[in-house]
């Protein structure tokens, strides 16, 4: 059981190396450097800055230097946030994004799964139509529209909740709700499909025919089993939350990974782009590995296959 997990985690190393190399190439082959926009800088100073950060060396030497630093866990320095290393920035930003992401995931599970179950149990009827209508609404409204709407209603008009930055638990509510919409709608559709499949199973009929009440069948047999797919889509869910965080952290001015990624791209802050991308890639790899392991734990048939 332990061995396949270790094997999968070990396989993540080349994946991350490929991501690092591709991103490195991408940001270095484009014209324009991090010190281009500062027009006031005399050319000598730009040359000195480039020399200090080894930007004057040929690309392949920079690459070797970069990979060497990566292996020591050093992600480099930010060119824009003076005197801050990328490690520092990520160390501060990562927990912020994690909090936001986890609260949003929790909300999306708490609302999405029941919504999908309600839809499936009333299949073809009014509650199915309504629940699916709501979930289609959820995937059709862009994150920035939800964000702007929530800010306008709850912060500007009603003055109930604070907006911007990341200071108190109150600051978490609006961003987390905004971020939860899209994964919530995704989960609702997924749960609906999985409940529809389970309702047809023989053992559900058995449970009913041995005299178990409708409620008990739904709670103990159907819902519990329909949660399995929720665990197994953690990969796509992580991707959805990462994508959403770009917009949400931008709108609410939250000092998280998504915000730093976007400003890094705007500023051509090479090492920060690379650092944030690597952390995102690492998160995705971990999520997908977790899914593989969860599959094996939840479904004995998969375990047999893995040991072959």
């Amino acid at each position: 059981m332990i061995f396949p997990i270790l094997k999968r985690l070990f396989m993540a190393v080349p994946v991350l190396l490929i991501v690092a190399s591709l991103t490195f190439l991408l940001v270095r082959i484009v014209p324009g450097g991090p010190f281009d926009s500062e027009k006031s800088l005399p050319p000598e100073i730009v040359a000195n800055l480039n020399a200090k950060y080894h930007l004057d060396k040929p690309v392949h030497e920079q690459y070797v230097l970069y990979i060497g630093r990566l292996c020591r866990g050093d992600l480099g320095v930010s060119y824009k946030y003076v005197n801050r290393t990328v490690n520092d920035i990520l160390f501060d930003a990562f927990p912020v994004s994690c909090q936001l992401g986890f609260v949003a995931l929790f909300l999306s599970v708490a609302f999405g799964v029941p919504l999908g179950a309600v839809a499936a149990l009333g299949r073809g009827g009014r509650q199915d139509f309504l629940a699916m209508f709501v979930s289609t609404l959820g995937v059709s409204v862009p994150g920035f529209v939800i964000g702007a709407g929530l800010i306008y209603i709850f912060a500007i008009q009603l003055k109930l909740l604070p907006v911007g930055l990341w200071e108190s638990p109150w600051h978490v509510i609006l961003p987390a709700v905004t971020l939860a919409f899209s994964p919530g709608a995704y989960l609702a559709r997924l749960t609906r499909a999985s409940v529809l499949e389970i309702v047809e199973k023989d053992w559900v009929r058995t449970a009913r025919s041995k005299g178990l009440s409708y409620q008990a069948t739904v709670l103990r047999h159907i819902l519990r089993n329909s949660l399995i797919p929720v665990v197994t889509v953690l990969g796509p869910l992580t991707a959805i939350v990462i994508t959403g965080s770009f917009v949400v952290e931008y709108i609410y001015a939250i000092p998280g990974m998504g915000r730093f990624f976007i400003t890094a791209v705007m500023n051509r802050d090479y090492d920060l782009i690379l650092g944030t991308t690597l952390v995102f890639a690492l998160l995705l790899v971990i999520a997908n590995t977790f899914v593989d392991v969860a599959y094996q734990l939840l479904d004995p048939r998969m375990r047999m296959n893995a040991e072959d």
């Binding site: 991408l26 990969g235 796509p236 959805i240 990462i242 994508t243 791209v265």
Partner: peptide
């Protein structure tokens, strides 16, 4: 498929 679209698009946009 497993890469977030927006992440890829932003990185590709650099180029």
């Amino acid at each position: 498929y497993s890469l977030p679209d927006l992440l890829v698009m932003i990185l590709a946009g650099v180029l």
